[in-house]
């Protein structure tokens, strides 16, 4: 009897183990293939060149710059709005059917396919607001995309603060805003930041919505520099510039025939994976560092 149960247990263990091995093995294999194909191509020339018809001369510079700038816009728009919305919902909003509805909507928005966001952005930003297929449009689109995630993680981070800390502040005569800005925000910053970084690292690989709003696939120039030599020394022209991003560049290369372009695509893929890993690593680091300081 016990033997039979033990055998069942061993079988189940074996089964789960092989499932795990299959999953991880596939990943390692994929990544390995990417390495083999792309690592040789990943050099300085590749990072600093513009796309070209000749694979060996082509580079990823505009896509890298595009991705960076789009992320910048996304972060500047998505983070403040998302965090503010999270704080509002958690700290200020009264529980009514309306907040319940908003809550459900936000949670569900996190699961909406990203191409839907692209479609929405195409109608709203590109046509209605006339922003065109620009960096601004892409940044705003991805900001919309990460908004639900930022809101949800903000709320979770805030909720992790024990009630008695909050009550201590209120008992001293603090107003709601004093409590939020002196305690709630600082103590939940690690959690919020982690969520934000993870959201951004997801956004950086997004392709569908960016394609939908009409990003270019071949671009041989950089957006105008944000700093100029004449007063007022800063320029926001780059916001309206056409652009491409790394995943789109990668897709463009993949769809071309020939071994050489495949190597370019693999190199771009490596770069993308690398950026994502770095951001995730940063998130883990931030969480670790700040967790150590804030405890109750």
């Amino acid at each position: 009897m016990i033997r039979r149960r033990k055998i069942a247990e061993a079988l189940f263990k074996l089964l789960s183990l092989s499932a795990l091995a299959l999953a991880i093995g596939t990943l390692v294999l994929l990544f390995g293939a990417l390495m083999v194909d792309g690592l040789g191509r990943l050099d300085w020339q590749f990072l600093t060149s513009f796309p070209s018809r000749r694979a060996s001369q082509a580079g990823i510079l505009p896509a890298m710059v595009g991705s960076t700038l789009v992320m910048l816009v996304t972060a500047c728009v998505g983070i403040p709005i998302g965090v503010a919305a999270g704080i509002y919902l958690e700290e200020y909003a009264r529980r009514t059917w309306l907040t319940e509805l908003i809550e459900v909507t936000v949670t569900n928005l996190a699961g909406v396919p990203s191409i839907i966001f692209g479609l929405l952005a195409l109608g709203l930003f590109v046509y209605t607001l006339g922003l065109g297929p620009s960096i601004l449009t892409a940044g705003l689109t991805l900001a919309l995309l990460i908004l639900p995630v930022v809101i949800v993680t903000t709320r979770e981070a805030i909720r992790a603060i024990p009630v008695h800390i909050r009550e201590a502040a209120f008992a001293l005569g603090a107003t709601k805003w004093q409590t939020v800005s002196d305690h709630v925000l600082p103590y939940s910053a690690a959690g919020i930041l982690t969520g934000v970084i993870l959201a951004l690292s997801r956004a950086i690989g997004e392709t569908a919505p960016i394609v939908t709003i009409g990003a270019l696939t071949f671009i041989a120039f950089l957006p105008p520099a944000p700093v100029t030599s004449q007063p007022p020394y800063v320029s926001f022209e780059w916001l309206m510039s056409p652009f491409t991003v790394v995943p789109i560049q990668m897709f463009a290369w993949v769809s071309r025939p020939g071994e050489d372009f495949a190597a370019n695509a693999a190199a771009a893929g490596l770069l993308l994976v690398g950026m994502t890993l770095v951001m995730n690593g940063l998130a883990i680091y931030v969480r670790y560092r700040m967790r150590k300081r804030v405890s109750w």
């Binding site: 024990p162 800390i165 502040a169 008992a171 405890s295």
Partner: peptide, 26 residues
């Protein structure tokens, strides 16, 4: 009025800032 709770609940801030907080609020 001031209140002291059942479970010690200092803020995760410095000793100094803990005591000073009531004054800062004011």
């Amino acid at each position: 009025l001031a209140m002291v709770f059942q479970k010690p609940n200092p803020f995760p801030k410095s000793v100094y800032e803990n005591v000073a907080y009531g004054l800062r609020v004011r």
